[in-house]
Amino acid sequence: MAINILLTDTGSPLGSGLRQRFESTTHRFVAEHPADLDWRDSAQVADYLDQIAPHLILNTTGWGEGAAVKPELLVAGARSLAKAVAGRDCAVVHLSSYRVFHGEGRVSHKEADVPKAETELSQVFSEAEAVLADALSRVLCLRSSWVLSTVGGSLLARLLADFQAGRATVVSDHWRGTPVLVSDVVRAVYAITQQIIYGADNWGVMHFGSSDVCSELVFAQKVREMIEAEIGQTLQLEELETPTDNSAVLELRRVRDNFGIQPRSWRQGLRPALRSWLKRTGYLEPAKAS
């Protein structure tokens, strides 16, 4: 049987990465939508789902890192999707974030921990998860720690933008996470969806991130070390002395137990991502054919 997979939004680095990965799938994959489609309008969404008849939806509507998050779209999109999908033979993989715990002051967060939604962003991400979980039986909410990409609002993108502008990046040695490259999140989502397609029946909240913890400062120092090794220039850093009670450290269990997905160190894959960015922005000359 042909499987129809729908990706709601490709505007973020994560959405774009998922599109690139899933376009090579043997299943029917839909990521191009009518220009006038409003994901906040449940009636429009329901009509669109009637046309596509998806078996699986990857929901990235409103998702982002840092300032790239679209709070109103995140919640309204989840609410209309929940209403439109209810009663259909369709599963949803919803991309969420460590931000559901933002402001709680815990050192790390387990999948079973109930978010208290202490900040505006944590409320937004928590509400988006809740409206889907309340309406649908087959929904998987995948929360990721810091998702790293060279564009957008991630910590890595911020470091590289400041490097280009010749200004120091303010980072904290207290703000800790289990950062993960966007390509690794894409890899995990693809593995999860393939198993769902072939009968996996694992739903609810799951966490994803790297296998090791670091602070913003430690991560930034590693990026600086790699840039200096490649081009001899130095990334300027300024340490924020004020302690923070936030943590993006996610404890991973269910993705390993239920889907066999093993996290890897955030250091793996970082150098190729940096080299690609340095070439694209002209800091490194492309290798010449001999």
Rank of each mutant, 00 (worst) to 15 (best):
T234V: 14
V131Y: 01
S145G: 15
S24R: 11
V75Q: 06
A86Y: 04
V255G: 00
E65P: 05
V100P: 07
S137K: 04
G11N: 13
L270G: 03
H109I: 08
L155N: 06
L121G: 01
A128D: 08
N202D: 12
H27T: 10
A188P: 15
G64Q: 09
D47P: 02
N258T: 05
W266N: 03
E129K: 05
S215L: 12
L148F: 08
V186T: 01
A112P: 03
A76Q: 15
R176C: 10
D38S: 04
V171N: 11
A43C: 06
S97P: 07
A31Y: 13
V30E: 05
Q164P: 11
R40D: 14
N258S: 12
H55L: 03
I231K: 08
R99I: 11
R187E: 10
S149W: 03
A112M: 11
P54G: 04
L250K: 02
H27C: 11
S215V: 12
R158I: 10
A191Q: 13
Q268M: 12
V92G: 01
T169D: 09
A128L: 07
Q236P: 00
L6C: 03
Q195L: 02
V75W: 07
L235A: 04
S183I: 05
H27F: 06
L56T: 02
P286L: 07
P13Y: 09
G11K: 13
M1I: 11
L284Q: 07
A91V: 00
M1S: 11
V85A: 05
T234G: 08
A220Q: 10
R88S: 02
R275Q: 15
A168Y: 06
E251P: 06
L18F: 11
D134P: 08
V182F: 12
H27Y: 13
L37I: 09
E72L: 09
R271A: 04
A86T: 07
Q233P: 05
I231C: 14
L278F: 09
G199A: 11
S149D: 13
Q44E: 15
D173L: 10
S211P: 10
R271G: 00
V69W: 02
E127V: 07
T281I: 10
A46E: 12
A273L: 09
D212K: 09
I227D: 07
P71F: 05
R267C: 11
V93F: 00
H33R: 14
Q164G: 09
S211Y: 04
L142E: 01
F208A: 12
A82P: 03
P13C: 14
G269P: 08
